[in-house]
């Protein structure tokens, strides 16, 4: 099943690069008082060096939980009770807390949506980056500071030396996001997890940050896992895409396959729901109803109650994620009837 996650054409060839990160059969459960429920189930994927994998879905689909799990940053009450996460040769789930701290910010780093809450408000941005450098690379304070300023230059922060001495609140939203990217990149990680990195930004600033991330990835060959709700961000950035619904993968494909021929009715619904030029003024195809509560999922396919193609079978039996076209996977009983 994890073969699903390798990039197109890479599967089966001898020279396929080893994935920078590989997740297999991961399940995340949340315990709330006496009850517990699954928020992410049967999650598997791999991201190769230099590759961008996007996980797209709406609120509550489990995409952010997946991101946090990779850095073992799950909130209290949530835990991974099945599966494995391999970063290179290391199984992250086998490590003690101290060993995980050695990896975090070093071999795997995270970019959050809201830099104002993710950055420490009482430390200058330079000091935060220098701290990370010193923690993972050692060396003198002076060297760490120089590396921090260099990291800020690397993300094209204007006037990097002066900005390094400023606090997060003194920077604009776009500059703060650049500072957070510098912090994530300062130790040259092999994997970056970016959770909605441009969602809080204005569209002109979003364009700059997307441009910056593409540039940096081209140069460094980092594996990028990008979590987003926005299919247009996916279209601009991804090599491969996983569409999540109610904690599970419902579709997985190479970027052009997904946009040329979305297979799952949920993916099709999402694409029809986006207001866009060509169809301006035409009625949008909305998906009736809302996302089900994760503690109250229907027995069969979680999308069945909102699905135009649902049959009695869909309500009883959950469809497995299957390869319907080469490299193109979907979890739906009705795909071949969908036309």
């Amino acid at each position: 099943m994890s073969g699903a996650a390798l990039s197109e054409g890479a599967a089966g060839t001898a020279s396929a690069p080893a994935p920078a990160i590989e997740v297999s059969g991961m399940r995340i459960r949340i315990a709330l008082g006496d009850t517990s429920f699954t928020v992410v189930d049967d999650m598997s994927f791999a991201v190769a060096p230099g590759e961008t994998l996007c996980i797209v879905g709406e609120s509550g689909c489990g995409k952010s939980m997946t991101a946090l799990a990779l850095l073992r940053l799950l909130p209290q009450g949530a835990r991974i009770d099945r599966g494995a996460i391999r970063l290179g040769e290391t199984d992250i789930l086998e490590l003690g807390e101290r060993a995980v701290e050695d990896l975090r910010g070093n071999r795997i780093a995270m970019i959050f949506q809201e830099p104002l809450t993710a950055l420490n408000p009482v430390m200058t941005v330079g000091a935060q980056i220098a701290e990370a450098v010193a923690r993972h690379r050692g060396g003198t304070r002076r060297k760490a500071w120089a590396a921090a300023v260099e990291a800020l230059r690397g993300v094209q922060m204007p006037d990097a030396e002066r900005r390094a001495k400023q606090y997060p609140h003194e920077l604009s939203g776009g500059m703060r996001q650049r500072a957070m990217i510098a912090l994530a990149l300062c130790c040259a990680p092999s994997v970056i997890v970016a959770d909605e990195p441009t969602t809080a930004l204005d569209v002109t600033v979003q364009a700059q940050i997307l441009g910056l991330m593409a540039d940096l990835q081209r140069r460094s060959g980092t594996a990028l896992l990008l979590i987003t709700h926005d299919l247009s961000v996916v279209a601009e950035t991804a090599d491969r895409v996983i569409v999540m619904y109610a904690g599970r993968r419902v579709e997985e494909a190479g970027i052009t396959d997904l946009f040329d021929e979305p297979l799952h009715p949920y993916t099709r619904g999402l694409m029809g729901a986006i207001p866009r030029g060509a169809a301006a003024g035409k009625r949008l195809t909305d998906i009736p109803g809302t996302v089900p509560a994760l503690w109250d999922l229907p027995a069969g396919c979680a999308f069945a109650p909102r699905c135009p193609l649902a049959t009695p079978r869909c309500k009883i039996e959950r469809p497995p994620l299957e390869e319907h076209r080469p490299g193109h996977f979907a979890a739906c009983w009705e795909i071949d009837h969908a036309g």
Binding site: M175, R178, D202, Q208, A214, E236
Partner: peptide, 8 residues
């Protein structure tokens, strides 16, 4: 997209 910073 250009990665260049722009002062707004």
């Amino acid at each position: 997209f250009s990665a260049g910073f722009e002062d707004v």
